[in-house]
């Protein structure tokens, strides 16, 4: 299924990235939580019965995002307010990155961590890119700062990426966000 991609974790991507700063903050939160969760889960997963693993992954990721939430709420309330409801919702994006990293890392712990770092880093980079693009476009036209503008900016980036990957002939895309649907 060449050329077809699955795009996930769009909610924070479109709604939080009105400036590059909030984009980076969200990306950092997701990346740090994903790497930490992969590390913690990599350590404990062998003690867990297979049927309980998904539930435990959700609890571990939820706890880490909850910790970040607490830390921001109590010490940096202004920053926390910028992320709004999308910080707790980032649990889902983070969970996707973690489960993919763990799957990729079945052959080794180090590989899973590397995978989480690269996927989280890719997500952070993308949020920075979309945030920066919207901030620039927003100066020309306030539409870019609305949700519709978020989708438009993201669509623009997707178009650029598709053109690039056709030229390079590579199926690899920005880490973590895009997965070939035929796995």
């Amino acid at each position: 299924m060449r050329g077809k991609r699955l795009v996930v974790a769009l909610l924070p991507l479109v709604l939080v990235t009105t400036t590059w700063r909030t984009g980076v903050l969200m990306g950092l939160v997701v990346m740090v939580a994903a790497v930490a969760a992969t590390w913690i889960f990599g350590l404990i997963q062998h003690y867990l019965p297979p049927a309980s693993r998904l539930a435990c992954q959700i609890i571990v990721v939820g706890t880490l995002i909850g910790l970040v939430d607490l830390w921001l709420t109590l010490l940096y309330p202004e920053r926390r307010q910028q992320l709004g409801i999308y910080l707790p919702l980032a649990t889902v994006s983070c969970l996707l990155l973690v489960s993919e990293a763990l799957e990729a890392g079945l052959s080794g712990f180090g590989r899973a961590i590397r995978r989480a770092v690269s996927a989280g880093g890719g997500y952070l980079g993308l949020l920075l890119l979309v945030g920066g693009l919207r901030e620039l476009l927003g100066r020309l036209n306030p539409l870019a700062l609305t949700s519709a503008g978020g989708f438009l900016s993201f669509g623009l980036l997707l178009g650029v990426m598709a053109a690039l990957s056709r030229r390079v002939g590579s199926e690899r895309a920005i880490a973590g966000l895009f997965r070939r649907d035929a796995r």
Partner: peptide, 13 residues
């Protein structure tokens, strides 16, 4: 065992 594992992880959390 499954329920126990989830319970322990949740308590730790």
């Amino acid at each position: 065992r499954t329920v126990l594992a989830i319970g322990i992880v949740a308590l730790c959390s």
